[in-house]
Computed example of a mutant assay.
Amino acid sequence: MSTALGAGRHPGLLWGLSSLLLAATGLAALTGAYQLDVLRLGALLWSPEARASADGLVFLHIRLPRLVLGLAAGAGLGLAGALMQGLFRNPLADPGLIGVSSGAALAAASTIVLGTWWWPGLSRSLGGAALVLGAFGGGLLVCALIYGLARSPGGLRVESMLLAGVGVNALAGAGLGTLSFLATDEQLRNLQFWLMGSLGGARWASVTLLVGVVGLAGGLACRLARGLNVLALGEAQAVLSGLRLESLKRQAVALTALLVGAITAFTGVIGFVGLIAPHAVRLLAGSDHRYLLPGSALLGAVLVVGADALARVLVQPAELPLGVLTAYVGVPVFLTLLRRAKRGLG
């Protein structure tokens, strides 16, 4: 096992990804409709007078929380993708397979469109606690539903989880279509903007909470690396080796649901990062999850921060939705992976 896993293992890749992330973060900090100079950026970090200027206010209260949100969201999505691909033992697996993001999206859409019926004045809270709690609650509810459907006397069945996720995704799509039909023009615009994903709603309170969630989940996920390496040999071999397989499955699913639900609640739907990042790291560093998990988190953060910087400059002074940009990149990559997998089966 160690030979197979270590064939493409390159610990130096983590340092390379860290350097790439640092460069992407620096570029994103300077980029946007409001340009900042690199020398000025240093002064903003250390000088109280500079922090009180217009540049300082823009950087500290708009640009910096947006950057930190992008780092946390990208790292969490990359990590969730690595967990799903390890659990399904399939490089085409994606966190969206189990329906958590779809459930969160449907709950958020219900808050936007139907919230004014349940709670008059809720529309003034959109983008705040009501929308976030609704989306996160929807993600957790879907996770509990799928877990219940996939559980059997023999343990948690991964294939049943996949089928349940397909059904939930289809139902959520129908629900979103119905809500779009019922929505007013203003609600429809809010709904579509949220569904396309954005980091524009970053506030320090929400950013701090998400960083804590991603950090905690990341630490717990890295403890699953050895078990995922054993699982790569097959479930039968994993059980014979003494792995607590059902516990591993439960923890991987729970962490994925926590990550995707929390991120979707704060940013909307950002697709394909959880597919691209783990697969790219696997191609470069092999399948050892001791490197794959942190590498996927680093590359996911690079992709989201870089895509957000690009989204802010492509259509200035407007902003291209982040989820649209990641889909333009992610769909061709997914089709390429699918074609490669088809050749492998042939």
Rank of each mutant, 00 (worst) to 15 (best):
L45K: 02
A252Q: 08
G154E: 04
L21D: 01
G218M: 14
A50T: 10
L27M: 15
V269D: 00
G6W: 07
G242A: 04
A4H: 15
G344F: 02
S198T: 08
I98A: 03
L220E: 12
Q237H: 12
V304M: 11
V269K: 02
H279Q: 10
R282L: 05
S19K: 05
G6P: 06
A93Q: 05
Y34N: 06
E319M: 09
V58N: 08
A129L: 11
P294K: 03
R282W: 06
L188Y: 06
W119M: 14
L20Q: 03
G344V: 09
L322G: 01
R63T: 03
Q251A: 09
R124F: 14
L64T: 01
V132D: 04
S206M: 12
V253W: 08
H279T: 03
V68N: 09
R89A: 15
G70C: 02
K342S: 08
A7I: 12
R189I: 14
L79W: 00
A232Q: 15
L39S: 14
V273L: 01
L224A: 09
L44I: 10
L245R: 05
G219H: 10
T184A: 15
R63M: 09
R282N: 12
S19M: 15
G271E: 01
I270Q: 07
A109G: 14
T3M: 11
L338C: 06
A72I: 07
I98S: 04
V333H: 06
D37A: 08
G99R: 02
G219Q: 12
W204Q: 04
R250S: 10
V304E: 09
L44M: 11
L30A: 00
M84I: 04
L216C: 13
V211S: 10
L67D: 09
A174N: 14
V132W: 14
L243D: 07
T184C: 08
I146F: 04
A82G: 10
L228F: 03
A170V: 06
S247Y: 08
R63Q: 12
L83A: 00
A265S: 09
L114V: 04
